[in-house]
Design a protein around this nucleic acid. Structure first.
Lengths: 228, 228
DNA sequence: GCAAAAGTGTTAATTATACACCCATGT
DNA sequence: ACATGGGTGTATAATTAACACTTTTGC
């Protein structure tokens, strides 16, 4: 491969993915057990080295596809982590990503046993290898900011869902309870959802209408961030 | 150096810095002319390859120090850019940073002619090499978000400044005019500044009070981002 | 009928926006 | 005294937040 830059020492480059999903009224993250030394067997994010012919985004998509069976999913960079001794096995520079997937579509390609991947509530994240706890922390903060200025849900909830489910998702994002009435009004004002005629009667006798995200979101309202 | 990971192809890793400063009522960015092929002589961000014994943050600080003479400055990651052919000279993965410096303290260590570094208003950014325009764009967006939720100014303005100057800085961030009266009230409500007894009489006969950032910002108010 | 969750309405507090007005001072 | 930018005040609209109220339906 062409290289006009001589005498530059190349580095090992990897990606680590914080994969979020939503299930049973809880926001969860997919954690696995590390296959390689050092740290073999410990809890870890899913990651891998970048290949010569792919971008970081390509690598992250490849890895998420392997472990979830899903492609074309929502994914964003968190940050790149490069402390000298973050990985005791070698000097590795790793870019963190966070991904949002629908657990109802989760269908891993790899044998689950191989990685022993599990969905863990974000409130119960164990100690992870290397600096992975820091990556998760930053990923969660980015997700919170996103959820603050845009209605996040399409990537995490099933096709149809109740407002209670959406609210409970938001309560997971912000880790606090939200007023049901005010939440409804806020969501409706965003013009992003459409009500179906169908009701979910699991949670109550009256039944709660199902909603889904509009195909056409041209009238959807986003919050400005600018407040000053 | 220890390496437990065999058969992994290492990559060239670099940093590129979008250095912002504020001068004559304008937000500016420090651009240089590229010293190396490919693209030698073209407008470019200031950057360089990461060394074996430093993190990305270390490398960015080193590079900013060389070109501005300043250390301990405000700096944050923008994102990491890794498209396969972003740099025609080789496959280079580059992490973008943005830095905020005070132009009144700017004192480059390297001969300025060597890089031909210049302060260019953000409204007049020329075509840059590779994907540097994209890096600048994302850096500016990050800066806007920061300025939306926190009072940015300490890192860009001189020690003492008038509210008009601060407002003009904010007008540079958001590229729109802000109501003088409402801006004052907003700033005062944030509890971040203290008024000096001194006045600046350059702009008017009456004179405008100088302000500075409080040493103690324990009572300073930050805007929540959470709006839903 | 009543419990329980869904959904609506009312009010107060806060914040944002537009703009009128007063202030100090060099000429 | 008056023009000019600095600085303050006021009226209104929009948003947020707390909480009371009505609706539906299975038991």
């Amino acid at each position: 491969m062409l290289n006009l830059y001589k005498n530059i020492i190349p580095q090992l480059v990897a990606v680590d993915c914080a994969i979020f999903g939503y299930e049973n009224e809880e926001l969860k993250i997919l954690l696995s057990h590390r296959k390689l030394e050092p740290g073999k067997g410990n809890w870890s994010l899913i990651g891998g080295f970048i290949q010569e012919d792919e971008s970081l985004e390509d690598a992250a998509e490849r890895i998420v596809l392997q472990i979830t069976g899903l492609s074309n999913i929502f994914m964003e960079q968190v940050a790149t982590f490069s402390k000298l001794n973050r990985d005791p096995g070698a000097r590795v520079i790793s870019t963190g990503f966070y991904a949002l997937i629908r657990i109802d579509q989760y269908a891993p390609l790899l044998k689950v046993e191989e990685y022993d991947a599990r969905w863990i509530p974000v409130t119960q994240i164990p100690e992870l290898v290397f600096d992975h706890n820091e990556i998760v922390q930053k990923a969660f903060e980015k997700l919170q900011i996103l959820a603050s200025i845009d209605l996040v849900g399409k990537a995490l909830l099933p096709e149809k869902f109740t407002l209670k489910q959406l609210r409970s998702l938001y309560e997971s994002f912000f880790q606090r309870s939200l007023d049901p009435g005010n939440f409804r009004k806020k969501i409706h004002s965003l013009n992003a959802l459409e009500r179906l005629d169908e009701k979910n009667t699991e949670g109550s006798k009256k039944g709660a209408y199902y909603f889904r995200f509009k195909e056409d979101d041209s009238e959807r309202i986003f919050n400005r961030v600018i407040k000053i």
